[in-house]
Design a protein around this nucleic acid. Structure first.
Lengths: 300, 300
DNA sequence: GACTCGCGATTAGGTTTCCTGATAGATAAG
DNA sequence: CTTATCTATCAGGAAACCTAATCGCGAGTC
């Protein structure tokens, strides 16, 4: 026989522990902070043990709270998945995918009609956001992320690897000054991508690796990779692009690779989702499609 | 943002769906059947879809209910595991294991002191029961079962395989009549084990396989394997024993194998537990110990 | 066929749980 | 010093929840 404390108190704990703030938990659950405070007192009384340390400078979880929190999260995730299975088994339903804006515009959106074709009853809601999202906060089913992988408490499956290539508009190659080899880059405008804070190849790194002695910090900068690519398409200069993002423009000959000098990265694209989401058939279909699509694009 | 229906309604649904009976669910949750009925109405209203078919001849789940039920079960299991982690991180705690009476007395109990030695702060509660148990109903953490494996919605890990051997008290071999080869069994009392309903080797099957023409149905019968073995130890006749159960008596020379004629079975011993239970360190320790212990006993 | 039993549905009314709104204390920033 | 932010606490009220009683239905039983 399971003996559980009041379920609302557990839900309040899950939110409070996640935010490490009673106020934000109250906000999430659409109640007042006082309600959360009381629920926590009730829960701690029921347990006979404290879950939070109320330091003057902020809230933190006790060891017990720390240990229990992931299970609470997972438990409520499961319940939510179950509830979604209960209602409206037929009819249109929606998969929400969180993805970086550049990847959305350059990779995902161009392929999305293929998914629509295969699953006409499913609507995809693309949630483009630079920031990592919180699956419990936002109503996100699955995320695509570029990085080292290994996201805690979530399932991450590798979609494809990535390489960095220089790209520019076709006209630049035989322009004046011409662009035939890496050292010609000294005479070109370099377009910079500031969106990868995590030290994915920069021009400075690339030039050093290619043995070109040149200040790699000059030139326009953008905080989104798609803007970088569009600047390159417009002939504004030479950009360092993630191949997956540039591939559509390359195939359409709006961009070319002036010299073949690929730089593989340790980072890769990952599908990331909470374990419980895999139970939803619409989410499972989307993930499966994503992986197949990535397989085609990047047979490794 | 997760949007969940009233949590108590979900818990009521989980219990009602599991028992396929509002009354028994009410019993489990210590409320009246009317309460369950109302909770189900509330939940179905909230969803806008029915979860149960109220046939005159009994309750059954709709497709939606069927799909959601396992997730509810798993979700509440997780919450329960989390709650157990919250309270009393130190101090003695208990692991409850459900096991067949014979296996308990002949295999588990003789080894249990080794576990106690290794984990002095853990108490093991042996719940011996002929019937399969319901992990949600009874407060059982882990079960050991003899069978084909593959229990739905639960994790099952193979402990060891099993073979069937004839056994008897040492005195019978050179007694009068003597017991030197299978055909001598015609002159012996055969002790029968009725505990295995699922067609694990019977004397009739065994004699046919061994080419002995003899009516294999005569002799005393017991509904527990441990009683069968004890009758054999007492010299009442020859028994067909599962090796794992007889091994302690064989090593102590209270029993012998009159002729080497092992019959392997497709069945094996399994540790079975709900996924969420593995989160509890005491349960994880016990399972780990069980597997190590089985490895020693049956290096496969 | 009448009777009983078991089971679920339903309703009114009461109890418990839960939340609000106001207030207080404590901390950090302006 | 003032303001903003955060948690704790309390009383009162709203909402959720449960009980108790009753009804309807079908399956056995005699």
């Amino acid at each position: 026989m399971r003996k559980l404390p009041p379920l609302n108190a557990l839900r309040a704990f899950e939110a409070a522990g996640r935010h490490l703030s009673f106020s934000r938990a109250a906000d999430e659950l659409a109640v007042t902070p006082g309600a959360i405070s009381q629920q926590m007192r009730i829960l701690e009384d029921w347990l006979g043990a404290p879950l939070f340390r109320r330091d003057p400078k902020g809230l933190s979880l006790t060891e017990a709270g720390q240990a229990a929190l992931p299970h609470m999260r997972e438990g409520f995730d499961r319940l939510a998945a179950g509830v979604r299975l209960m209602k409206a088994s037929d009819g249109p339903c929606r998969v929400t995918v969180s993805v970086a804006p550049s990847f959305a515009s350059k990779w995902l959106v161009p392929r999305l009609d293929r998914f629509q074709e295969k699953h006409p009853q499913l609507d995809v809601y693309v949630h483009a956001d630079m920031n990592l999202i919180d699956f419990a906060d936002d109503d996100v089913d699955v995320a695509i992320r570029f990085g080292p992988g290994g996201y805690d408490g979530l399932i991450s499956e590798r979609l494809m690897s990535e390489t960095i290539v220089p790209v520019c508009a076709p006209g630049l190659i035989n322009g004046d000054p011409p662009l035939k080899e890496p050292s010609d880059l000294k005479n070109q405008t370099l377009i910079h991508d500031d969106s990868n804070r995590d030290g994915v190849a920069t021009w400075a790194m690339w030039l050093r690796a290619a043995g070109v002695d040149c200040d790699g910090n000059r030139g326009p900068r953008f905080n989104q990779s798609s803007l970088v690519l569009e600047a390159a398409v417009a002939g504004k200069g030479v950009a360092l692009a993630r191949y997956a993002l540039a591939v559509a423009d390359l195939e359409a000959a709006r961009l070319v690779i002036p010299f073949n000098y690929e730089t593989p990265t340790d980072f890769a694209y990952w599908v990331v989702y909470p374990e419980a989401k895999a139970a939803l058939p619409e989410v499972a279909s989307f993930i499966e499609w994503l992986k197949a699509e990535a397989q085609d694009a990047d047979p490794k």
